[in-house]
Amino acid sequence: MPPTPQPKDDAEHQALLDSMDTYYTKKPFKRPEWKARRNKNIKQMVSEAQRREASVLATQNNSGASTPLPTDGATTPQPSMAQAAQNLSTLVLERNLAKGAGGGSSGPGSTNLTFALGPAVTYTNIESAPSLQTKKHYCDITGLPSRYTDPKTKLRYHNSEIFGVIRTFPQGTPDQYLAARGANVVLKAFPHMAQESAPA
């Protein structure tokens, strides 16, 4: 059972590789002078977008450009929205959105109008909020339903047998299990604190 259907012959394999290699293939449709710009990861992009977003909002709030809102007695969502976007607190945002939608007259037209001026849809704020439902607990080892938590390792376990297994784990293993559930404790060193605590 070889993992890949590999050609037996080296030369044959090299020929296959050569047939697939695109490095030296002519690409007439491409402009040779063009070069891709710097890569940015999502974190960088999001923080840049947020800075821009905040400045746009600030301008809107100060200039009065955002005043004409159809207010029929409902509170305007704008200020708290700006806060929410800046705090990156999606939960707050969602609640406010719900309030705004509830207060405004219903119908697609009006909701669109309400949000056309805010930071409508951004990569960060469409992320759904944490669950408000009670979480069901499952055994960290076997995945079976669990009613118990080991006070020492904080692992959840299904029955006494699994508990026995937990207690035989070498150091570090419980942490790996916790990490799979996102419940592990991550210690971070803060450089400025390290400096402070260093002897003078």
Partner: peptide, 16 residues
């Protein structure tokens, strides 16, 4: 459906 199983701190699909 239950993102908490894998430690994702978000609501499940149906809750969303």
């Amino acid at each position: 459906l239950q993102p908490s199983i894998a430690g994702v701190d978000q609501a499940g699909l149906v809750e969303i």
